[in-house]
Amino acid sequence: MDRRTMGSPLARAIGLGSARKGVKHWWAERVSAVALVPLTLWFAAAIIAHAGSDHAAFVAWLRTPLAAILMVLLLTALFHHTVLGLQVVIEDYMHSGAKFAAVIAVRLGCFALAAAGIVATLRITFGG
């Protein structure tokens, strides 16, 4: 946001000053990435093992405690990483007020998708 056009070059460079934040976002992106390495590899292996399986077989698999736990962890880490990554992409390329709308939409969307995925998983796991 460049509010000055006649101001000094230093005033423009300083802008609104340092937010003194950013490391939390950066760190969380790394932590979720570290979590996703084993979780996504497990998921890829599971998909390969269950390629083309029918509903009954899939439900039986997701009812095992290990699969259910890992699936919930995967969804949590995946959407945490997604929201952090998408926010960076938005902030890099969007500079109007629409940036805030996009960040809010992505945040809420990722929360909703994570919740839907986790509820679906738990329903299968504990369903009758």
């Binding site: 003194r20 934040k21 950013g22 960076v88 902030e91 890099d92």
Partner: peptide, 14 residues
């Protein structure tokens, strides 16, 4: 580090 720690000043580096 206070001056640098900012989502854009430093962390726009990818």
């Amino acid at each position: 580090l206070d001056t640098l720690e900012d989502p854009m000043r430093l962390y726009a580096c990818h």
